[in-house]
């Protein structure tokens, strides 16, 4: 009995070691997007805006598969998206409050609640596209709600970033660079087009 238990223990240890080796040899490369984002130079709107980052945005990760269907890159960009919005929103509105729920937004007496969501993330690698650039596309659904949770506006924004292979960065660094360019693209188009979204413009005119 003791002998069997020991054998089982040894087998488990052996199996977990082998699994670990296999994962480290052919495992997925983890890329956590990191970058710094400047504060926009734009005129502020006289609004108190609540921001609701849901779990899907906070933990957003995209997995790129090889042509044979194996996981190749795991790109985690949730934190960088939050850092980006934290840099951009205070430059757009007089006051920005981060809330954890719609109930909290209601009790804080805000003018509106902004809830961004990522709908789609795409990565194009030179090895697959045969182009000399790494490319990242991100599609967002921007939602603006009243403090009571009623609809104000809901619009789609896409952002794009690329890094040439000529920069001689590692694949992971090049993906990070392309994603940071895409995030800057999002920040520029969002901050400049916010008041131009028809539903937002109508709502601003009614205030």
């Amino acid at each position: 009995m003791t002998n069997i238990a020991l054998n089982t223990k040894s087998y488990n240890k052996f199996a977990s070691t082998m699994l670990g080796l296999a994962l480290s040899a052919c495992g997925v490369s983890n890329v956590v997007i990191e970058g710094s984002f400047p504060t926009p130079n734009i005129n502020k709107l006289p609004l108190t805006m609540a921001v609701l980052y849901d779990e899907a945005l906070r933990n957003f990760a995209y997995i790129e598969y090889t042509e044979t269907g194996e996981e190749e890159f795991n790109i985690e960009s949730g934190l960088s998206h939050i850092q980006l919005f934290d840099a951009v929103l205070p430059a757009m509105f007089d006051q920005v409050i981060i809330v954890n729920s719609m109930e909290e937004a209601k009790t804080r007496g805000v003018d509106a609640v902004f809830a961004p969501a990522i709908e789609e993330f795409q990565l194009a690698l030179p090895a697959k596209t045969k182009l000399d650039v790494y490319e990242v596309w991100i599609k967002y659904n921007m939602r603006l709600l009243t403090a009571e949770g009623d609809y104000i506006a809901d619009w789609v924004l896409t952002s794009y970033g690329k890094t040439p292979t000529a920069t001689f960065l590692s694949v992971e660094a090049a993906i990070n660079e392309a994603a940071v360019v895409a995030l800057r693209d999002l920040a520029s188009s969002f901050s400049l087009s916010f008041s131009e979204v028809p539903e937002v413009r109508d709502w601003l005119n009614r205030l």
Binding site: P38, T39, P40, N41, I42, Y160, V181, R184, D185, A187, S188, S189, S191, L192
Partner: peptide, 12 residues
């Protein structure tokens, strides 16, 4: 480009 953000980005 950083100081002028977002006016001199590739799209703007």
């Amino acid at each position: 480009v950083d100081a002028m953000f977002p006016w001199f980005e590739p799209r703007t």
